[in-house]
Design a protein around this nucleic acid. Structure first.
Lengths: 197, 197
DNA sequence: AACTAACGCTACGATACCGTATCGTAGCAT
DNA sequence: ATGCTACGATACGGTATCGTAGCGTTAGTT
């Protein structure tokens, strides 16, 4: 009996359709929010028939989940050798995500939609957890280097750094300037205790 | 000619209808979000005829704005005589707003709706600005008392304090414990410079 | 070239809304 | 008691969605 490998129902038409659909869904989400991301709008924008959309996804929510998944960025975390540098890199990366499409426009809607849609809630939770991990790593490296106390709570550091950035984007709606980012990183650093030996 | 004072078209039926409508709208917003707050649902829930709703508001958005306005809390700002105390009071007040209905359930939806509805955007902006003001005041008092440097940026302090709290509620969805609040207030304080004389 | 799977198109049925119109009723004021 | 005003009930017309069905067409596959 031939091994039925799980891959390769790769009809190029299928991959093409899926790609066009997701691209259109993302564009609509970004430009006009969750409310405007309707199946018919996705069909019109992608040039793919509505029927075909339902051939690949069971319902609208599934399409939107795929669209959101397709643009969740992975956090970058360069090791600059100093806590200040690590945190700055990280904060600037987050600021980019918060201020440039497609992610920029998506996050507010995602936050609200997650409140009543468990599937999207899971996506959001994964996204934010992934966002905090590089901070944890940076803190761990700083502890190893003896920059900061071993008792430092990495989660607290992450919250202090991420919180103000998200706050600007979602609540106060003020611009995320490099000046503000630098100031926040410095503030977070002043928070931390030097190692006691 | 009798002075036609601008007040008192207070037919008790009117006030009663308005009250029932707003109560129902708030309940729907809180329990099931902006998407479920439809005019027909408000009518059904309030027992007030849909016609009557349109007799008092021009359209659905206006009703929802009134509903949101009706539950926007004003920020409290007691003067405890110490920055630590002021900030703690304030943070705990905000934590309550973020974790107890009706405001708790409303904020995520409001954040998203504000993205595409200028009217609600204005409401959100006013809400957040009002939230930061007590922090500004507390910082000003602390400067006067000589607790902290006169060069302290009150806006930066507000962001550092509010950001992590909102972050927990909206993004990481972890509980807002008094322990976490205390830790955050302490961190914000460590950020601040003593006055140079 | 023939077969097959994916696709496009059009048309539906079913809801769910919005906002308006009509008309009769009930409550308030005087 | 009488008039005015708000209200309730119902019914609309109009849109916008969702998700499905039928059927012919196209593009890969072999």
């Amino acid at each position: 009996m031939v091994e039925q490998v799980s891959t390769d129902p790769v009809d190029p038409r299928v991959t093409r359709s899926r790609r066009l659909i997701i691209e259109a869904a993302v564009a609509l989400l970004v430009e006009r929010g969750f409310g405007a991301a309707t199946v018919e709008a996705i069909s019109a924008r992608s040039g793919v028939a509505k029927t075909t959309i339902y051939r690949h996804w069971p319902d609208k929510e599934a399409v939107l989940r795929s669209a959101v998944e397709s643009i969740v960025p992975t956090a970058t975390a360069p090791d600059t050798g100093r806590l200040r540098g690590d945190l700055t890199h990280f904060a600037e990366d987050l600021a980019r995500i918060l201020t440039t499409p497609p992610t920029s426009a998506l996050i507010p809607g995602l936050v609200a939609a997650a409140e009543h849609d468990p599937g999207l809630g899971l996506l959001l939770a994964e996204f934010t957890a992934g966002r905090r991990r590089p901070v944890h790593d940076a803190v761990a490296r700083a502890v190893e280097r003896g920059e900061i106390s071993a008792g430092t709570d990495p989660e607290a550091v992450a919250e202090l750094l991420l919180g103000p950035l998200f706050y600007r984007r979602l609540l106060s709606r003020m611009p995320l300037t490099t000046e503000m980012i630098g100031r926040t990183v410095e503030a977070v650093e002043r928070t931390l205790a030097r190692p006691s030996r």
